[in-house]
């Protein structure tokens, strides 16, 4: 891409963004970002930590939505590649002395590289078969992380990552927020461009997209690698956030959490992953006192969303109306 076309792309993205941000959903996202930005003034360190976690998870879910929601490639390997990014970051930082701010980028590279082998079968398959083959690949990566204890630290995980910014939570918080917002903007820019149009064309009908002269294999590969690399970068942030990278990060249960966030927020909607992560992870943390029942509750939430709001919280306008009606009834009932 030449410098000029990049500048044109940035102009187009900003133009589109200035329109989108005025819509109801855009305002909602802007409000969330502003609340997050001023939150260190308002809430305890514990909750700032939770907001960091929400931001990192939101980035993972955003990048999953990039692959699944726009290209229609329902990958189950995302949590595993998130973990690969975490391991990659931790290893280059601890063993090769890569500066902490740079290390997650290399983690992203590692995730992108390890996404390549599974692309070969993914390109040959469709729909639920993509889910199956990526699930198998994810399990291979997960179990490899457990076995290869010389590299990964085995079942107990890899420690000794060190800290970013000398362990200052506030600087790290704003760094994470900036990285997440920046990478979200990058994905947004790609999706409002021709690239995004072709992605959606592939999702709706790959044959038609191909017939119109698009190299769908190339676009699917690029989309898959970009999405996976972003998950890897998020994994690097996660490594610095919790100070340890361990196999559960790559487990099927972690993947299910991400899927739930994506589905609750809404597939194929740019704002869905953020809302879904805030709802699912935020409520999980807020309800920590009630114990395991909260896991039962969000299982029920997931089922309810799939049955009644298949487009998710941000994708279904009926949902907004119903919430409004529910609030009205609540207001009427309490007064």
């Amino acid at each position: 891409m030449s410098g000029e076309s990049i500048r044109a792309g940035i102009d187009r993205t900003l133009g589109q963004l200035s329109g989108d941000v005025r819509s109801a959903k855009g305002m909602f996202m802007l409000a969330l970002l502003l609340i997050a930005a001023v939150s260190p003034l308002l809430v305890s360190r514990h909750w700032v930590g939770i907001i960091i976690q929400i931001a990192i998870y939101a980035l993972v879910v955003l990048s999953w939505n990039f692959i699944a929601g726009y290209f229609g490639l329902f990958t189950f390997a995302h949590a595993a590649l998130f973990g690969v990014g975490g391991y990659g970051t931790a290893i280059v930082a601890a063993e090769y002395g890569v500066p902490p701010m740079l290390a997650p980028l290399l983690g992203g590279l590692a995730a992108g590289l390890l996404a390549l082998p599974v692309i070969v079968p993914v390109l040959r398959l469709a729909d639920d078969y993509v889910a199956m083959v990526t699930l198998a690949y994810a399990e291979i990566l997960h179990r490899a992380a457990i076995i290869l204890d010389g590299i990964t630290g085995g079942p107990t995980g890899y420690t000794g990552i060190g800290s970013m910014f000398g362990g200052g939570q506030l600087v790290f918080f704003y760094f994470v927020l900036a990285v997440v917002a920046g990478l979200a903007l990058l994905q947004y820019g790609l999706l409002v461009s021709r690239f995004g149009l072709i992605a959606r064309a592939i999702r709706e009908s790959e044959d038609a997209a191909q017939m119109l002269g698009n190299n769908t294999i190339r676009f699917k590969t690029i989309g898959f690698v970009i999405g996976s690399s972003i998950a890897g970068i998020a994994g690097g942030l996660q490594a610095y956030y919790i100070g340890i990278v361990s196999p559960p990060m790559m487990a099927l249960t972690q993947m299910i959490d991400f899927l739930a966030m994506a589905v609750v927020g809404g597939l194929g909607v740019m704002t869905g992953p953020v809302a879904g992560t805030v709802i699912v992870h935020g409520s999980t943390e807020a309800l920590r006192q009630i114990g395991d029942i909260r896991l039962l509750l969000w299982g029920i939430l997931l089922i309810a969303v799939i049955l009644y709001f298949p487009k998710g919280f941000m994708g279904d306008d009926r949902f907004w109306d119903r919430i409004e009606a529910l609030l009205d009834r609540f207001r009427g009932g309490s007064s």
Binding site: A260, D292, L296, I306
Partner: peptide
Amino acid sequence: MLTLGIAIVLEN
């Protein structure tokens, strides 16, 4: 996704 949700509910 639906059956995953059912699995989560049954398990928890």
